Simulated scan of single mutants.
Amino acid sequence: MADNENVIDLLLEQHREVRAMFTELETASGARRTELFHHLVGLLAVHETAEEEVVHPEIRDLEPAAETVVEARVAEERRAKELLSTLQSMGPDADGFDTLLVQLRDDVLAHAEHEEREEFPFLRAHRTPERLRAMAATVRLAEAVAPTRPHPGVESATANLLLGPPAAIVDRARDAIRAALRK
């Protein structure tokens, strides 16, 4: 992490990575498709957890009127987690996977656009560059200990802090087992 990295730039870069992964998933097949999908699951899971723990509470603290914006983003995140969980249960080779993947892509990209248009300008206008850099560091820490799989219903900062660490341990153990089995 660069010392001058701010939370908005960090999240924008992650949004670009997610967009690129969806694009690559559209044409990938076989083992590469499965690998990309599992990477996407992990990226989205840790990204959303960090937003729920750091970004959304920050916006709520800034302006009570922003509550409706935050609640809309949380609802989008919950829907994405539900779809992602369903897709994960199905697997990339299942019938209907592609249809749900397109739905997930559309939902996730709309969610990212809403954040970029509604939340990020609000942060930029109301937080100092120093605070935005501190938030980036906090997001990085939250991502380092976040679950790597979706857990629908765990969208609040409190729920993430209480339930996230045990879920993260289980998720990361599963990831290690999956990686060992692929070798």
Rank of each mutant, 00 (worst) to 15 (best):
L36F: 09
E71W: 00
R19S: 12
A75G: 02
R73W: 01
H111T: 02
D106A: 15
L40A: 04
R105D: 02
R79L: 07
D107I: 11
A50E: 06
A45I: 09
V102Q: 12
L43S: 12
E118H: 05
M90N: 02
H47V: 00
S89L: 13
L101I: 00
E113R: 13
E48M: 14
L84M: 12
H39N: 14
S85V: 01
S29Q: 07
R19N: 11
Q14G: 05
Q14V: 03
E63Y: 02
G30Y: 10
E13C: 04
L87S: 08
T27A: 05
L100Q: 15
F97I: 02
F37G: 01
L36C: 06
E35W: 09
A65F: 03
E118W: 06
E77I: 01
E63V: 04
L104F: 12
L40G: 03
G42Y: 03
H114Q: 14
L83H: 10
M90F: 03
L36H: 10
L100A: 05
N6D: 15
G91W: 09
A72W: 07
L25C: 03
R117C: 05
S89C: 02
M21H: 12
M90H: 01
R73M: 05
D106M: 03
P57V: 00
L36G: 04
V7Q: 04
I59R: 04
L100E: 14
R73T: 05
E26M: 14
H114L: 11
V54F: 03
H39G: 12
I59M: 09
V46R: 15
D95Y: 01
A94V: 07
E24K: 15
L43N: 07
T68I: 14
A112M: 14
A112R: 13
V18F: 09
A72S: 13
E52H: 05
P92K: 03
R16L: 15
G30S: 09
E63H: 08
E118S: 14
M21E: 00
E58I: 05
L44Q: 15
E53W: 00
L100T: 01
T27M: 01
L36N: 03
G96F: 06
A50Q: 07
S85H: 08
R19W: 06
S89A: 14
E118N: 14
T34R: 08
V108A: 01
A66H: 12
A75L: 08
H39F: 10
A72G: 10
E119Q: 15
E48A: 15
P92T: 09
E26W: 13
L36K: 13
E116I: 11
G30A: 11
F22Y: 11
V108T: 06
H39I: 02
T86K: 10
L40Y: 07
I59S: 04
V70H: 02
E76T: 05
R117T: 09
E24P: 00
F97R: 11
E35N: 09
V69W: 07
E52W: 00
V7C: 07
D95T: 11
